[in-house]
Design a protein around this nucleic acid. Sequence first.
RNA 1: UCCUCAGUAGCUCAGCGGUAGAGCGGUCGACUGUUAAUCGAUUGGUCGCAAGUUCGAAUCUUGCCUGGGGAGCCA
Length: 463
Amino acid sequence: MTAQRIAQILRAGQPGETVTIQGWVRTKRELKKFSFMEVNDGSFMANLQVVIDQDFPDYANLLKQLSVGAAVSVTGELVASQGKGQSVELQPSQIEVVGGCDAETYPLQKKRHSFEFLRTIGHLRSRTNTLGAVFRVRNACARAIHEFFQERGFLWVHTPLISTNDCEGAGELFSVSSFDLANVPKTDTGVVDYSQDFFGKPAYLTVSGQLQAEVMALTFRDVYTFGPTFRAENSNTSRHLAEFWMVEPEMAFCDLVGNMDLAEAFLKHIFATVLEQCPEDMAFFNQRIDDTVLATAENIINNGFERITYTEAIAHLEKATQSFEYPVAWGQDLQSEHERYLAEQLFKKPVIVTDYPVGIKAFYMRLNDDGKTVAAMDILAPKLGEIVGGSQREERLDVLERRITEAEMPLEELWWYRDLRRYGTVPHAGFGLGFERVVQFMTGMGNIRDVIPFPRTPLSAEF
RNA sequence: UCCUCAGUAGCUCAGCGGUAGAGCGGUCGACUGUUAAUCGAUUGGUCGCAAGUUCGAAUCUUGCCUGGGGAGCCA
């Protein structure tokens, strides 16, 4: 008999059905004449309760083996529960302990654990209620992202993880090399001889798929990337990872407004889909992690995002009654405290800030007619800060080349990127969305290390 | 990388110069259907590491390591 998933049984199971479940014991309560065992198979927040009578064959010995964490296969009949808290429970006819679990040394207990401790047992923490819910929601987010783009005719393009351009200048890079690090080839002048390395030149893990996504957008119009990205920054915060997932749509024949419209519709779709597909998990987060996540999700889905220019944002900040640690001045980048003030205090919802000063943004962002600002847009989310960063791209070859030179970027290496402006150039735009930050925002989880199964951060890559 | 707080039992913490503690967990037992069951007993320690001060250090000092929170960098 094929095993059924516990989610299906708890949602639609009827008394009288015979089912087999396969999962792990979450908790067990022994009484005099019978025992309750709760089994979880990862498909659902709640467990399926199995009631084992003392007359069950080999009762005493069996119960010893049914310790928390043990893997079991149980066949039996669903019956209406006599207790509160669940409508059906399983009356077993057969229980197999597939893999035992030593209760003396098993680190997970039937109590709340700190997330700090759970990070030290990364191979077991997904078995907890919270992390289990996180990873189901994460999956639902990923699915919603693909759905959103696929329904709109976007092509999912796979951009390379290994890059020989540090074009975006987005932070420190991880080097990729096949050299024996103990014996690196050097030239006569003593510098590393990359011509002997695997790619014949320095190579890195990618910090963004954007430049390649632009290539594909100028063929397929609407494309998106969704994959891992790497930053070797020594960042130690609750919002940064050395390896994280990023979604980067890129659209040809599209300006900044179209870009903002898409980003807003995109976030609304993700939230709506997750609420629909993981209501139990979201209720759990609202109850146990952050009692504003459901209201926030409804707010995102039902209300338009605030849209202001950078210049207007500066004006708002200058009028603010609260004082800031960092001074507010046109031309300076917004600090965390400024972003939080705008999103949390002033508007209390996501804010799209556009048209930043040219001096603080990347070379590829389109120069506005005023010559002082670029067609950039950041979406600032309450509690998280920047969740989306995007722009309309500079499609004019002469302007782009000037900006590359001013930014002291290698003009030669970007020959193929400049070629796009030479052969059939077109206004185009796109943005990058930090996937983990969306999951954080959705679930209310305070630390980004708890929304990715195996976090990579400075000095930490154990699992 | 900077600022700041913290490392004591498997976990969460108290103790803050004089014999190392509690709750939870584990184990054993009791128990009329339990929901992190309850009740009783019991088990459990290189007090992060290294040096120093002291008759005596978990406790005071210094350095290092690790973790949390905040900042910078950014998504």
